[in-house]
Design a protein around this nucleic acid. Structure first.
Lengths: 348, 348
DNA sequence: CCGCAAATTGTTAGCGTTCACAATCGACCG
DNA sequence: CGGTCGATTGTGAACGCTAACAATTTGCGG
């Protein structure tokens, strides 16, 4: 005679009455609380299994005030760097019992960032990780106080907590490498000026040049894409071509390599090129790309550690990218010692 | 005399008493329900603003039974394809008022997949999108009935609903392209045998060869990485080298290109190579890679459409990858018409 | 066997929202 | 000017869980 209602999913009470105990006892079993006799525990487990009971997360959240979810604010996730960090964050978060709610931004304007963060807060996240190393996004985030822990990645010392790789000194070490090969005219193909990563790498390039008493030389900007690297490479006047390029990321370096090849400039014979990131493909570029490896996955893990206070902020030193020397950098040619820019470079 | 308790975040009731109305009226305003006078609405809005009130998502979920969150089960997100799909899914989901909870799998074993799905269900997702075109993962998913809509991406007709690009006919069109250039010995460098994508592309290659009365020839397997493509390229005996390779994805094609170059095989002069995916870098490989562009973003959007029933399943035809012809494919050489494998290929 | 402490189990009251319904208020019709 | 209808507002009871405390049982020394 039972009415054919939609079988509402079973609740604590349902389990309790089936097991012949109180709902509280079931709650204790589910939450692995002590002071439950083995016999009772078994009965309850049996009932849970029989009904295929799943605790209702919303009710639990309401009662405890915890949601166990962390919000992630991300820009372009189809790129290797951000998506790798996300993987690391996800690993660590899940291990710590948290879920990730990911929101992507279509741009970094104030309203977009604002709305995204607001949505995350409405959703009840307990913390936010901003994977948006973009100055305008960071500015917006800095002005919003949300009442929950927030952390930026690669934000260059954002006040609300920031986890970063030491990109500036990594960039410097790229320059050091080139200098040690005899290069004196070292250009930089940078990322967009409003990206923090681009700024740090640019700063590292500048300071390393200064440290060696070298003049600054050519500075170009791309948009991280291979296309922009290619365009940049085609755009340089031959007379201004340096003996080495430090490039802001591997994709742009790929484009640059193609442009140089097309113009008959051998790499590393005529021009050395060094990238940044060490994407998995970099080794198979032509030539194999010398670059700086960033441990994105570790960075992601560290985000969760810091957000959850599992580790003192900034402890254990900041992660250091590592120089990976491959075939795209080599000694400067004997007949081109990096002298003044007036000198017309040789070309085959 | 107020006690210095932690300032609990304001509730509907707090707003109500500040605005001098009932909690229900506030609820109505918040949810944009009709039948609230403008004056009241304004008062409530003012109170909301003053208290910085945010509706409690958990309480709302408990009362309505809706969580507005969708679970995403993903494998390796640091790759271009999956992460692009994720972007598309995220766009569409948010537009439809849903949040994405992303869980990544460290492998595709039954326990891992099982646990991940179970966690998502515990979290209260209203649907699941599985970005795991891997046979064993799909098998596990097929056996679990969760009571909520579930959809696989690129699962090749998984029973619980599946959204996919037509990879088989796309692969066939790659082969057609090669055949039209005069190639008769067309090898395939496939992805891992337990990936659905790899299977579809392999099937397309086979069927197209058969359609043209060509014998099957060389079949190699890689793991999607550039390294594996490189290794495969180095491993082929020169005598068995075909005049064209259809490669399962662009990364492996990149590695293959490098191996071929190292062995002195010109591309496309001696061997043509065609990839799959059209990653943004493919155009800048050496040579520019002919490949099949997959519209991952659209695919992601379609997932949400189908999951939410915004569109009939499989409607509007399946998305068709598009052939992008670049410089890595060319006519077969006059002195190598793709004859029998006994024939020793020329080499510079 | 009594009584007290420890272990185990049950009871009640929220958590902040929405839902269903009741109550009030105005305006308009006859 | 009463009555009725629609618009607006309020009331009480869920939703499924946990926290705090009360009640019951058990074990054990005297």
């Amino acid at each position: 005679m039972a009415a054919a209602t939609t079988p509402r999913s079973p609740s604590l009470t349902d389990v309790a009455s089936l097991a012949g105990v109180s709902h509280q006892t079931v709650s204790r079993v589910v939450n692995r609380r002590p002071n439950v006799s083995d016999a009772t525990r078994r009965k309850v487990h049996a009932a849970i299994l029989e009904l295929d009971y799943r605790p209702n997360a919303a009710a639990r959240s309401l009662a405890t005030g915890r949601t166990h979810s962390i919000g992630v604010l991300a820009g372009e996730l189809s790129q290797y760097g951000p998506s790798s960090v996300l993987m690391g964050v996800q690993d660590a978060a899940r291990r710590a019992g948290y879920f990730l709610t990911v929101v992507t931004l279509k741009d970094y304007s104030a309203p977009t960032v604002d709305e995204a963060l607001s949505d995350l807060l409405d959703h009840g996240v307990e913390g936010v990780i901003a994977l948006t190393p973009h100055v305008s996004a960071l500015e917006v985030l800095a002005t919003m106080q949300s009442g929950i822990p927030m952390l930026t990645v690669g934000g260059g010392g954002h006040r609300g907590g920031d986890v970063a790789l030491d990109q500036e000194s990594a960039a410097a070490s790229a320059v050091e490498h080139l200098v040690s090969l005899g290069h004196r005219r070292i250009a930089h193909l940078a990322g967009p000026a409003d990206w923090v990563d681009a700024q740090r790498r640019l700063a590292g390039w500048r300071s390393a040049l200064a440290r060696h008493g070298l003049e600054e030389g050519l500075l170009l900007h791309g948009d991280w894409s291979a296309r922009s690297g290619y365009d940049a490479g085609l755009g340089v006047e031959l007379g201004r071509l340096p003996t080495a390029f430090f490039v802001g990321n591997d994709q742009m370096a790929l484009g640059l390599l193609k442009a140089l090849r097309q113009r008959g400039c051998e790499v590393p014979g005529r021009v050395s090129v060094i990238g940044f990131d060490d994407v998995p493909e970099a080794e198979y570029y032509e030539p194999s790309l010398t670059t700086l490896r960033q441990e994105f996955h570790d960075l992601g893990r560290r985000c969760i550690d810091e957000l959850l206070g599992l580790q003192a902020l900034g402890a254990a030193g900041s992660l250091q990218p590592r120089l990976i020397v491959r075939a795209s950098t080599g000694p400067v040619r004997a007949d081109d010692d990096g002298g003044g820019p007036e000198r017309v470079p040789m070309q085959g």
